[in-house]
C-alpha cells in the first residue's frame, strides 16, 4: 500500500520548513511528503512543533524558510482561506465553533465560502441544506442541526469541527488533537469517523497524543521532537525506534 502510493506524485510536499518565534526555533527544517489517500499519524511531545507545523501548512502562520507544495501548487505566501479553497482543511485543537450560529449554519459556512467559490453553478439553497444534513449525518449530529453550539457536549463539538472541515470538500484534512479529553468510547467513535472520511478518498493527517488511537488509525507515523522530524515510517517500527522512545521517556 505505502510503496504503491509513494510512486505517484505526493499530495502534500514539504521541504526544509522553518519557523521561529523570537529566539525560539519551533520548526527546524522539516521535510515531509504525503501521498494521496494516506492516513498519517503525527506525534511528538508538547512543544515539539506539531501545532506550528499544522499552522504553517494551513497558512495560519507563514513559514520563514522552506516551502509547502500542495496538489502540485506552491502555497507559500497564500493566506489560510486561499489554502482552504485549494483543498486543505483543518480542525482546531480547541474547538472554535461560530457561536452565534446553529450547528447546521456552522457547516454551511465552508459550503458558501469554499465550495461555492470553486464550483459554478453555485449550490442552490436546497442543495446547501441537503449537503449540510448529509455531513451532519456522517458525524451523527443530524439530530442537533438546529441547536446552538453552546448546547453541544465536548465530543459533539469535536464532531462539528470535523464536519465543518469536511464541508470544505478537502483533499487533505488535518485533524489537530480531535480526541483530547474524550472518553474511551468517544475516542473510538472519532477514530472510526476519521477512517470513514478517509475511505471517501480524503487524505488525513492526524495529530494526537492518545497512542491507542494513533496506532489504530495510522498507516504511517511521523515523530516530531524540538521542531525536527526524528522518525518516519511504519507505525510499529517507529514506536520501537530508540530515539523516539528516548524522546518520550525523557519528557
Amino acid at each position: 500500500m505505502t510503496d504503491a502510493a509513494t510512486m505517484t506524485e505526493p499530495l502534500l510536499h514539504i521541504e526544509q520548513l522553518g519557523k521561529r518565534f523570537g529566539g525560539f526555533i519551533a520548526l527546524d527544517g522539516v521535510d515531509l511528503s504525503v501521498p494521496k489517500g494516506q492516513r498519517l499519524g503525527l506525534i511528538g511531545p508538547n512543544g515539539s512543533g506539531k501545532s506550528t507545523l499544522v499552522n504553517c501548512i494551513c497558512g495560519t502562520l507563514q513559514n520563514e524558510t522552506g516551502s509547502v507544495t500542495f496538489d502540485g501548487i506552491k502555497v507559500d505566501g497564500m493566506v489560510a482561506h486561499q489554502r482552504t479553497r485549494q483543498g486543505l482543511a483543518r480542525s482546531f485543537q480547541l474547538p472554535r465553533p461560530f457561536r452565534s450560529m446553529t450547528v447546521a449554519e456552522n457547516v454551511r459556512v465552508p459550503l458558501l465560502y469554499t465550495v461555492n467559490a470553486r464550483s459554478h453553478p453555485h449550490l442552490s439553497e436546497s442543495e446547501l441544506d441537503d449537503r449540510c444534513m448529509e455531513l451532519l449525518k456522517l458525524v451523527t449530529l443530524d439530530a442537533k442541526a438546529a441547536k446552538y453550539t453552546t448546547d453541544l457536549t465536548q465530543v459533539e463539538m469535536r464532531k462539528l469541527e470535523l464536519a465543518r472541515a469536511m464541508a470544505a470538500e478537502p483533499k487533505l484534512l488535518i485533524a489537530d488533537e480531535s480526541m483530547a479529553g474524550l472518553s474511551h468510547s468517544e475516542v473510538e467513535d472519532i477514530v472510526a469517523l476519521l477512517i470513514r472520511m478517509n475511505e471517501r478518498g480524503v487524505t488525513i493527517i492526524m495529530i494526537e497524543h492518545i497512542m491507542r488511537a494513533v496506532m489504530t488509525f495510522s498507516q504511517r507515523l511521523v515523530v516530531l521532537v524540538s521542531g525536527k522530524k526524528i522518525a518516519d515510517g511504519d507505525p510499529q517500527d517507529v514506536i520501537q525506534n530508540k530515539e523516539v522512545v528516548g524522546a518520550y521517556l525523557g519528557q
Partner: peptide, 24 residues
Amino acid sequence: KLGVGFATIRDDELAAEASGVPTL
C-alpha cells in the same frame, strides 16, 4: 452570504479563514 461571512469574523476569525472566508 456577506452577512454570514461578517458573523464568522465576529465569532472566530481563525475558524473563518479555515472555512474559506476571505476575512481581510
